[in-house]
Write a protein that binds this DNA or RNA. Structure first.
Lengths: 336, 336
DNA sequence: AGAATGTTAGTTAGCGTTAACGTACATTAG
DNA sequence: CTAATGTACGTTAACGCTAACTAACATTCT
């Protein structure tokens, strides 16, 4: 008794069974060209009974299109990025495209590896979020791709469309510092992220605030990974090391929350002893006690717009486009 | 001046340039077969200068392997799932596989569409999380795939390996109810999810508790989507409709948090006026005030194990395997 | 020395599609 | 009535790669 091997049903099988050419079947499947009603229906019924499913690989080989878009994020676990991915996925699925997700765990080397592996033969377009790579490396990697959209990073040579905040990077933390100063704070700490200063260096950040009459010491500023754990650990050290601080800015909400937890454990009252401002406005920020003052970012829309810009590019539009979003301050209990 | 069209560099280009056959180049690229050191190095240098990158599509067509695994989740925005995806992605990337993510937004039709589109020619294996589809439909859809792992759902015919909680589904809510009863609560509400009763119907749930001497009225139990918003909205109605309740179980933490918010807005003190228990133990649960009593679920490990089981299957192992995880009660302030 | 074995390569034939062109027949226009 | 125009399909040749086989040559063994 011969083992029935599960065999792929090909276009040719359908064509033979239906008594037509493979091209006819192909045209029915793709709904292209002109086909008579009767032939179409007949072929469709044969397809159904045989259970034919087109081979994506073969199709990709000849058309050079894979119906997949790549998405690179540093941390899918961060609600900020998962919301963006959700937006991207919604648009992609609407257009019958799949999402190839690469989660780099905040590791530049893994990001580079991912960009190296992915290329035209894998995906039709690419959306890169908050790349940690230096611009020149990033550009060389993105050059392989015919359609690219970059989130939160401008591309000087217009090699990609961009989704950007209305302020330059780091600006929201600058605004947060001014907000705190206006509310009487003079000793303000800053637990910043690589990307939260972006094009602005932490030194520029300090200098700029100094010229506004807001003196911030360099040691009050510490680099952190954009995770709750990092915020918590650095927060603990920070609070112990600089008891004079009356306010702290977190690079994002996760970090701000970690700081807040550390502060509470150290016996500080929020906001009386220590005011805290975050960024991103993830769900968590509004639910804790006190709720966190933060900058709202329209993450879902960012994903949607990035995907739309990408599809524009994939459709051959070579015009450089930007989608600008605004971050708005949400005043809540942690820094009233 | 002729436009230089960006042209793909093929194996043949490399072979011609290096003065060898395409097979030799292929062997160098794939590191298979025996190649002399000198030839290998020569070919590699030609590959580097020409910037050759293998075509995934062509490779997939001939090998029938795509180096991609599909992952279907209902809501990537839910930390529960994003953690699982992170675990899967880590294992996959370790083995040079990419993750094709499908986010169904809790919509069964979209899930079915996704399972329909994906098949062997797209992915080498599939991990399905918490499918909302009826078993028979799910089975018929999974049959197309050579390697499948299902999370939080048993597959009667062993068509897929499984990652399962040590208790049958719904059991943790049952335990939560018993816990609350032991702490003196007699009027316990339950905002449940489709999957939180799983194989157990809500009627069975009530009957079982009744036989334990814990009478729960049917109207105290309401179905909810597994989101914060749903929990909040249903929580508001529930609290207004059944002021007699002294405790509520949420199907997961997001729902429990929504309920808690609604309760606080209605002037209830937690836990004095209303005790709340959630499930999953997402970060949020430990950070709110009061922190939420919940069942911890090792989500990252679930993802890792699911991926490992999947790779076992992809490597040809046809043994049915299960990975069983335990959910442990974390007592916190919302239900001490 | 001759046979057996090992090593390094080349040759051939697809994998399952679709683009581009070709052909037969029916319809309309002049 | 012939020529022009459609309509509905069929044919052929790739797309870029690798499995499977073959070939040449070097090495070892008896």
């Amino acid at each position: 008794m011969a083992m029935e091997r599960k065999q792929r049903v090909t276009l040719e099988d359908v064509a033979r069974e239906a008594g037509v050419s493979t091209m006819t079947v192909s045209r029915v499947v793709n709904n292209t060209g002109r086909i008579s009603q009767s032939t179409r229906q007949h072929v469709q019924s044969v397809i159904a009974t045989l259970g034919y499913r087109p081979s994506r690989a073969a199709r990709a080989l000849v058309t050079n299109k894979t119906s997949m878009v790549g998405v690179i994020v540093p941390d899918i676990t961060n609600p900020y990025f998962s919301k963006i991915v959700q937006g991207i996925e919604d648009v992609a699925s609407e257009r019958n495209h799949s999402v190839l997700l690469v989660n780099t765990n905040e590791t530049p080397s893994r990001e580079e590896a991912a960009l190296n592996q992915l290329d035209d033969s894998t995906i039709d377009g690419l959306i890169a979020c908050s790349s940690r790579l230096p611009t020149d490396i990033l550009i060389s990697l993105l050059e392989r791709h015919s359609a690219v959209v970059v989130i939160n990073r401008s591309m000087p040579n217009h090699i990609a469309s961009c989704v950007l905040p209305s302020h330059q990077f780091g600006y929201r933390s600058y605004l947060a510092a001014r907000y705190l100063a206006q509310h009487g704070h003079t000793k303000i700490g800053f637990i910043y992220l690589k990307r939260s200063v972006g094009v602005m260096s932490i030194e520029e950040f300090i200098a700029r605030l100094a010229s506004d009459g807001i003196p911030i010491k360099r040691e009050w500023c510490t680099l952190s990974l954009p995770t709750w754990e990092a915020g918590y650990n650095i927060g603990k050290q920070h609070i112990a090391a600089f008891p004079e601080l009356t306010a702290v800015i977190g690079g994002n909400d996760l970090v701000a929350l970690g700081i807040m937890r550390a502060a509470v454990e150290a016996g500080r009252r929020i906001p009386e002893d220590l005011a805290i401002i975050g960024g991103d406005d993830i769900l968590l920020a509004s639910q804790v006690t006190p709720p966190i003052t933060t900058y709202h970012v329209p993450t879902y829309d960012i994903g949607v717009m990035a995907a739309r810009l990408l599809f524009k590019r994939m459709e051959g539009d070579t015009v450089y486009r930007e989608y600008i979003y605004t971050e708005t301050l949400i005043e809540r209990g942690s820094a009233p």
